[in-house]
Every structure is written in structure tokens, then in C-alpha cells.
């Protein structure tokens, strides 16, 4: 067993291209491209109607940040469909067309690569990637800046396994229910007194870790009144699952009367 190769019949190295007399088969390419186009259209149609098929697929998108996330999720999915379909349709077509029941000792054509195709593939995925990065950076710049308007600051403190919310502009009123005025920019300053937590309001699409000894910040602009939930999104020990608080987005008037009532209780020395 000194020499295991087919010897002279084969070149020592893989070479690109169908250089060994492989007949091209354009009709397969034409067919599979048509199937791909149809599958892509159907796939995109499915994506655009997914929220109808699966009610409650996303939480109520109740902030301007959430609306951006909602759009991006759908947009990326639509972009992903043709790429995924390219792989699936080509693979499925190959399997359906060239499947053999059992091994017959026959080989396929000796195509070991196509420099043009490989270059095209890499360049187009690089372009797609570049687009995603530029898009992402633009969106990131957008959500990192304070939304316009008079900022309301809320200090969020995580401690195993409860959040509390302090309104520094209201004499330090502190509560375990978070109330926010609608259509007003909010700055959350988040910290933890013990271990890592993560402050997440799914309906507002904001999340920032609560790190002991540090203050992290995140902006939100609630746009829709309603009752939502704040959850802890970083495993923080025994009752991580129960580290949830009620969030109420109120009208401007509703918020003033709520915070007024809280101030009176707070002033009496009770919680």
C-alpha cells in the first residue's frame, strides 16, 4: 500500500474550474433559478404575514425604540429569505435531481471549483454584510442619543430579586411599580447593589445590565399608554424568574396625579 492515489490520472492539487471536459448544463441552472425566485417571493409573503399567523409574536411595541426594533426584525428577515432560499433550493434541487438509490460505482463530474462563482459569492456576501453594518450603525447612533424633549430621569436599583425606581426630580420618591409619562423621553440610570442583573422592558425594547458599583444608562421614549412588565434578563440567583415589576405608561395628567399621590405617601415616611 505504498501508493494510494490514482497516479497519473489526477493532478496533485485541486484546480478551479471545470477543466476536465465537463459539459455545462444551463437548463438545470435556469430551472433552479426560477424555483428560487418563486420560493423567495413565497417566503417573503410568509414573513410579512407572520404576525397575523402567530398572534402576540412580539410584545406591544410601545416606544419609539421598539418601533425601530420591530421594523429591523422584519427587514432583516425579508433580507434573509433570498439568501436562505438560495442554499435550500439549490441543495433540494440537487438532491431531488441527482439522488441515487444505492452506490453504483459512478462518480459525478470532476468540478472542483469555480473561481468566478467563489469570488462572486464572497463579494456579494461582503456587500450584504457592509450594508448591514452601515444600517446597524445608523440605528445604533439613533437609539444611543437622548430623544428630544424634557428628560425625566429614573434611577433603577436592582437588588436580589426586586427592582425599585427612584424619581430624583420628585424628592427621591421610590416605588416598586414603575410609572412613566407617555411621549416624554426617559433616562434610566441603572445600578445593582449585589450581583449582575439586567433591566429589560420588552414592550419598550430597552435593556441594560445593572452592574454592582457602576451606573449604566439607557434612553426610552414611551409612545403608547398601557401596562407592561419589566423583567430581569441576567441570571441573578434563586428568584431570577420572579424579578419582575409592573410598568405603567400613563398620560401626562395621569402621571402627575400618580406621582403626586406617591409623594404624599413618601413624605409621611411610608413606602
Amino acid at each position: 500500500m505504498a501508493d494510494l492515489g490514482p497516479g497519473a490520472a489526477a493532478p496533485g492539487n485541486p484546480r478551479g474550474g471545470a477543466g476536465r471536459g465537463v459539459r455545462p448544463e444551463p437548463r438545470h441552472i435556469r430551472r433552479v433559478l426560477v424555483i428560487w425566485a418563486i420560493a423567495t417571493v413565497l417566503g417573503i409573503a410568509l414573513v410579512l404575514n407572520l404576525h397575523r399567523l402567530l398572534p402576540g409574536l412580539l410584545p406591544p411595541m410601545a416606544s419609539s425604540e421598539a418601533q425601530g426594533v420591530d421594523f429591523t426584525l422584519g427587514f432583516f428577515t425579508v433580507l434573509a429569505v433570498p439568501v436562505a432560499m438560495l442554499v435550500w433550493v439549490f441543495a433540494a434541487y440537487s438532491i431531488a435531481t441527482w439522488r441515487v438509490r444505492r452506490f453504483e460505482g459512478l462518480d459525478g463530474p470532476p468540478i472542483s471549483g469555480s473561481p468566478v462563482l467563489q469570488t462572486t459569492w464572497i463579494l456579494s456576501s461582503a456587500l450584504l454584510c457592509l450594508f448591514l453594518v452601515v444600517y446597524g450603525l445608523a440605528l445604533l447612533t439613533n437609539v444611543s442619543a437622548a430623544p428630544p424633549g424634557r428628560l425625566l430621569t429614573v434611577d433603577v436599583t436592582g437588588q436580589q430579586w426586586q427592582w425599585n425606581f427612584k424619581y430624583p426630580s420628585r424628592g427621591g420618591v421610590t416605588t416598586t411599580t414603575l410609572a412613566l409619562p407617555v411621549n416624554r423621553p426617559i433616562l434610566f440610570r441603572v445600578t445593582s447593589l449585589d450581583v449582575d442583573h439586567s433591566f429589560w422592558i420588552p414592550a419598550l425594547a430597552i435593556k441594560i445590565d445593572a452592574i454592582p458599583g457602576e451606573v449604566t444608562t439607557v434612553y426610552a421614549m414611551p409612545t403608547r399608554e398601557g401596562t407592561y412588565t419589566a423583567r430581569c434578563a441576567e441570571l441573578c440567583g434563586l428568584y431570577h424568574s420572579y424579578m419582575q415589576s409592573r410598568v405603567r405608561v400613563l398620560s401626562a395628567g395621569g402621571f402627575s396625579s400618580w406621582i403626586g399621590a406617591q409623594e404624599r405617601v413618601w413624605g409621611r415616611g411610608g413606602g
Binding site: E25, V87, S94, W98
Partner: peptide
């Protein structure tokens, strides 16, 4: 993967 499958004699 897809390039290798294409026009092969695919033995499942």
C-alpha cells in the same frame, strides 16, 4: 456544500 452537491451522484 451546495457546489459539491450540484450535479453529484448523491448517495443518501
Amino acid at each position: 456544500a451546495v457546489g459539491t452537491l450540484w450535479r453529484g451522484r448523491i448517495w443518501l
